[in-house]
């Protein structure tokens, strides 16, 4: 469904990704594991079209989207829930969700999707008329996920959804992610909470210094010595 072939990318003159290739199949939940600064976020931002790769190609449903601008990538059905929520802080929660459905395909079914998403997030429903900036970190993350789902994407990418949240809230976020994946949505997820994420996913890639060093099923990664040492600290 989504395929990266030999991607090199970075910011300005600084190259962060070196020859990254990966693949996500329809209905899969795939994790990218890696240390801070390994290039996980850069990978997602490159797929989303926010960064132009200097080399390599990206295919989505066999269509070359390497140089497609970010807003068109969304139109094709790829949605990124960015690190740090990135809500529209001065807009209400409802307005934030409606912006999520800006994509052409989602706009016509806006009301229906909203109802569906709110049924998954009862807490968000209670907050609809509040300004997004006034919510707590955990609630904001819920809104960010809900906003991402409003686009009715074919593939949903999460960038560090548990970042900066208290452990209790992290558990709730993971429950929500499980709920999302159980609906059959294809998911690509980057997360520092390696153990929980691998538990919830089918396959995983290990990214180190901008290169994919291991690619395997989640179960295998959980028992892989290198992964255990480097990321689980055992």
């Amino acid at each position: 469904m989504l395929r990266l072939e030999g991607i090199h990318a970075g910011y300005g003159p600084t190259t962060i990704l070196h020859d990254v290739s990966l693949e996500v199949k329809r209905g899969e939940v795939v994790t990218i594991v890696g240390a801070n600064g390994a290039g996980k976020t850069t990978t997602l931002r490159t797929i989303a079209g926010l960064i132009q790769p200097t080399e390599g190609r990206i295919f989505f449903e066999d269509r070359d989207i390497t140089s497609t601008p970010a807003h068109e990538v969304v139109d094709l059905g790829i949605t990124l829930i960015p690190e740090g929520r990135q809500l529209f802080a001065d807009m209400t929660v409802e307005e934030n969700l409606l912006m999520g459905a800006y994509r052409k395909e989602a706009r016509s079914r806006q009301a229906e999707t909203l109802e569906h998403v709110l049924s998954l997030f009862p807490r968000v429903r209670e907050r609809l008329s509040q300004s997004a900036g006034s919510l707590s970190g955990g609630e904001q993350q819920m809104v960010a996920i809900a906003r991402g789902m409003m686009a009715r994407p074919s593939i949903l990418m999460f960038d560090e959804p548990s970042l900066g949240l208290a452990p209790i809230i992290v558990q709730q976020v993971f429950e929500v992610i499980k709920a999302v994946t159980s609906t059959g949505t294809t998911v690509l997820i980057v997360e520092q909470n390696v153990f929980n994420t691998l538990k919830a996913s089918d396959r995983g890639y290990v990214l180190e210094n901008g290169e994919i060093v291991i690619s395997d099923t989640s179960e295998a990664l959980l028992t892989n010595d290198h992964v255990r040492q480097a990321y689980l600290g055992i």
């Binding site: 926010l50 001065d90 807009m91 912006m99 994509r103």
Partner: peptide, 16 residues
Amino acid sequence: RAVAQNRAAAQLMGIN
């Protein structure tokens, strides 16, 4: 308004 508040997030919503 979305673009004014958060340009990058607006792009991620599919806004040109």
